[in-house]
Amino acid sequence: MHLALFFIFGALCVAGALNLLLQRHPINSALSLIVVMSSLAVLYLLLGAEFLAAAQVIVYSGAIMVLFTFVIMLLNAGKEERTHGSKMAYVAGFPGAAILLGLLTFIFVSRRGSFGQARLGEYVVTTADLSRVLFKDLLLPFEVTSVLILIAILGAVALARKEH
């Protein structure tokens, strides 16, 4: 059951990511990124991260991707054109990413004996557990993030505003 769910949603993730890479129009890339983020939320749930699965759907595939699609439609972004620089990126990009993937996969597969197994429901972090750590031990960093968000909002408004 766990294995089947992992493979279904893992395949959805990889398919969405590949679609992001291959699509020429940014709106298609944005929609496939929503598929990736929603399937990642299911994988988080399988790993026992209840709160983060909900936050992933609300914050990532909800808020952030709405912002992205909004900006794509606002700027009326069309298909990207092929230019000279992108040929260099093809020569360096695909082999570099393949080497990175090979290296990481080699490390994880050769060390798989030292990693355990993930069982469904074996270790579940409830919202209460998470908030106990967040509001007791990490109260100051949590409050600092609210200041960060405030500064980000002000910065976004100041940057995107029309100058008179």
């Binding site: 992992f6 993730c13 990889v14 890479l21 990207e80 054109e81 798989r112 993930a118």
Partner: peptide, 26 residues
Amino acid sequence: MVPISYYLVLAAILFSIGVAAFLIKR
């Protein structure tokens, strides 16, 4: 029951696709 290394390999695949897209997208 899924080995943790499967999840790590999936994350590595997603990260590498992200790196490739970062370099190739115009």
